[in-house]
Amino acid sequence: MANVTFVQPDGRAQSVEIEEGFSVMQAANNNDIPGIAGECGGCVSCATCKVEVDAAWIARIPASTELETSLIEDEDANVRLSCQIMMTPELDGLVVHVPASQYR
């Protein structure tokens, strides 16, 4: 199991456990974390599971594919689709920030 912390826009933080091999989006959906929709269930289409990866962690996240990049309009390179971040032992303790809205 690996640990992920979701920080809401108001600073409230929730830590959840997820099995390695599952995505950060699944961790959020399994634990009813507000603000992560995941409408398409992780097939890299809807872009409703965006998170901003904490600066301390971004270097450890594998680079995004072209398809993922083309779904994110944000200029901030730390913004990623959480369905594309698969949990590994190296990511245990990961911190991600939830946006105020997935729909803007």
């Binding site: 409408e39 809807c46 997935q102």
Partner: peptide, 22 residues
């Protein structure tokens, strides 16, 4: 409200055109 609804469906068949629609 900022809620997730079924407006564009859900899962693998989630609307292909939803970015254009929005």
């Amino acid at each position: 409200r900022r809620a997730t609804s079924l407006a564009f469906g859900s899962g693998i068949h989630h609307c292909l055109g939803h970015h254009l629609a929005r």
